[in-house]
Design a protein around this nucleic acid. Structure first.
Lengths: 204, 204
DNA sequence: CAGTTAAATTGACACTGTCAAGATTCAATT
DNA sequence: AATTGAATCTTGACAGTGTCAATTTAACTG
């Protein structure tokens, strides 16, 4: 019951998620092979299928962890009362891109077609992802009320467009189109300035 | 030399691209199997390898076609002197999203990590894709000079951010995250208004 | 017509995800 | 404590995939 090989693994579910996360970061989502993964963990090829319906179910579990992680970051920024709203908005933008670029494979999982395409997304995944966006909508609404963001737009649309912008920047980097990563900072600043525009100059 | 089965296909190169494009639109990039493709064309599994180095080389050829197609659309809009600049900017936005949503698989190919990821992109692909973006930068610069877009930003940054926004919207739809396609129009309008802001209200 | 080259072929290899049947262990009930 | 039932893990197998090597066939070139 110590280190000797045991028929029942004990916590294969959790171990698989950990090992899969590690493999994912190294080899990407396509390079994550269930068979190699099983070998890593020291278990037969089909053992994982007793804990996850299929490969996507395992990936969903990893994505869920990613959503928790990101949501925590977003909340920390938004609820930091010390900083002025403008700074928090900028921080939010930079944090988003930083999260995406530092965990590209997880980001791809969270927002890529592997899990979302063709209505593949499970209800579990939806239930985790949607609140995260709803939270951003409420943040947007508040920034609008504070006069930081344009008030002549619906909060939902504004949130969708700002998110799309961040998502677009993230993907262009992650997917290898913007190979030159040295200008990311400036792009973020440009995006922030665009969204705030006249409001940016006022408080300072 | 007519319709009888012939050992040499004649124009396998072109036929493969056509058949692959058709298969791509139906089954997506992952569902495009070289073997099935060869079967469609009536040729052995490895015949395509005498015309394309590997699967990615074939996909690159299809992507190249897509770039040509899109560039033509962009040029047509930008050079339509009949319309005011503001309208052309809006048209450009809508055309981009329309192109992406009507040819999702090709768009994925053109801007996805399949061809671009990890420095995979061939020089040929780069030589086709870059001018397309450079053209958009020059369009942005002109719109700035006309006072349509903010002038306190570098044209390059502005073009990058606007492109990122469009790319983000496109991907969120294509990848199945924005399943509700009924609000795409409004999102595009919101994005256009954001970029133009004060300038939008002036001419009307 | 001979010889080189290009094009297409079969065979094979190393992978992949996943299903079906059987073996093993654990947990709970008699 | 023994038996039953469920959970867990195993081997075997199937249908795919991209791609390489060696080989045959056709077409061009001198």
């Amino acid at each position: 019951m110590t280190t000797t090989s045991q028929y029942h693994h004990g916590d294969l579910h959790g171990t698989l998620i950990d090992a899969a996360s590690a493999r994912l970061e190294k080899f990407g989502i396509a390079g994550l092979s269930l068979r190699k993964l099983a070998e890593d963990v020291g278990v037969s090829r089909t053992a994982p299928y007793h804990h996850f319906k299929d490969k996507n179910a395992l990936l969903s579990a990893i994505a869920a962890k990613g959503f928790d992680q990101w949501h925590q970051i977003a909340v920390d920024i938004f609820e930091d009362e010390h900083l002025p709203a403008e700074q928090r908005f900028k921080d939010f933008i930079h944090a988003y891109i930083e999260f995406a670029t530092q965990h590209p494979q997880i980001y791809e999982l969270m927002f890529g077609q592997t899990l979302w395409g063709e209505g593949k997304a499970s209800d579990d995944l939806r239930d985790i992802a949607y609140p995260s966006f709803q939270y951003q909508v409420s943040m947007t609404r508040l920034w609008q009320e504070k006069g930081l963001l344009p008030q002549d737009q619906q909060a939902l649309r504004l949130a969708q467009v700002t998110w799309a912008t961040l998502h677009g920047i993230a993907r262009l980097i992650i997917d290898g189109i913007y190979a030159d990563a040295s200008h990311i900072e400036e792009m973020c600043n440009c995006a922030a300035a665009l969204f705030m525009q006249q409001h940016a100059a006022a408080p300072d």
